[in-house]
């Protein structure tokens, strides 16, 4: 049926494709099916309810006015924060100096720390009674804050944890990008006496743009589904003030035991990120070709 080459090509991807089918495609369809049915975990009647769950999700004030804004705000700020910090660090480290190896080792640690462990560390540091942050604040005469039970400080701490986790990744990739740039334009600029800012603005940044765009796309898509650090730091609280999209779906499916509603939320989120993902892919493609 197939030529020898086609057979080879298909066999190369067959195991991967099979696993992808069984453990991603099939569950997505089953989830889609569940999202149209009355599928409570304690009593799965599985009767068809049409778009009821979608209507419930899309008219839920908590989803529209808390979860979605939180998710997009988190995505934008965590990517922007890690990108800016990572870029600044990459520019700083892009020169030979003693101790480079040590700095690199330290920067690698956050990259390899489990998000759950990172969240536990941050929780302890910002503990309202015994955390070092409050201890220091009180020592200098300021008032300690219950950091994790106020909406915006909790949100800020989640953001900070995420930026701490991901800045080194940006640094590493941007540093690799910087080191692979051609030397000649920079030498020419140095001869012309161009200021450092102009070199950065008109040489480094444009030449680095492809790397930056790829990093931002990968991170943005991953930031959208953040779960671990929020779950461990605040559990979505205080109340539901720091709930992100993944938590919303999880809470509905496994805490409120309504798999139909949870699946509908998961699919709504999946569709949103798919649209964003395809749009971003087009953007990368255009920039790569330009």
């Amino acid at each position: 049926m197939f030529g020898e080459q086609q057979r080879f090509v298909l066999l190369l991807i067959a195991p991967a494709a099979l696993l992808l089918l069984l453990f991603q495609v099939v569950p997505i369809f089953i989830g889609a099916n569940a999202s149209f049915r009355n599928w409570a975990l304690y009593d799965p009647k599985k009767t068809w309810v049409g778009f009821d769950h979608y209507a419930a999700v899309l008219s839920d004030p908590a989803f529209l006015y808390v979860v979605l804004p939180n998710t997009f705000l988190f995505m934008a700020l965590s990517v922007a924060g890690a990108l800016l910090a990572g870029l600044a660090l990459a520019l700083l480290l892009n020169r030979p100096f003693r101790g480079q190896k040590l700095v690199q080792t330290i920067l690698l640690v956050p990259l390899m720390v489990a998000p759950v462990v990172a969240a536990i560390m941050v929780r302890w540091i910002f503990n309202d009674q015994f955390g070092i942050v409050n201890v220091v604040l009180e020592a200098v005469g300021l008032e300690g804050q219950p950091w994790l039970v106020q909406r915006w400080s909790a949100f800020g701490i989640i953001l900070l944890t995420d930026i701490w986790l991901w800045t080194p990744w940006f640094t590493l990739l941007l540093l690799a990008g910087l080191q692979s740039l051609p030397k000649e334009p920079f030498e020419a600029a140095a001869i012309d006496g161009t200021t450092t800012w102009r070199v950065f603005r008109f040489l480094t940044l444009p030449m680095l743009r492809p790397v930056i765009v790829v990093c931002v796309v990968i991170r943005a898509i991953d930031a959208f589904r953040t779960f671990d650090i929020v779950w461990t730091l605040t559990g979505g609280g205080p109340g539901r003030a720091t709930e992100l999209f993944s938590l919303y779906a999880y809470v509905h499916a496994f805490l409120n035991l309504d798999l139909g509603r949870g699946s509908a939320a998961a699919i709504v989120g999946g569709l949103i990120i798919l649209v964003i993902g395809v749009a971003l892919f087009r953007l990368v493609d255009r920039i790569a070709k330009a």
């Binding site: 992808l20 453990f23 569950p27 997505i28 089953i30 569940a34 999880y250 998961a266 990120i273």
Partner: peptide, 21 residues
Amino acid sequence: GTIYVFRCVPYISWVLPLYFV
């Protein structure tokens, strides 16, 4: 194309029903 699309799908969207599978 398949790989890119499935890379974008949030984990929760397929791990949640995977519980049932």
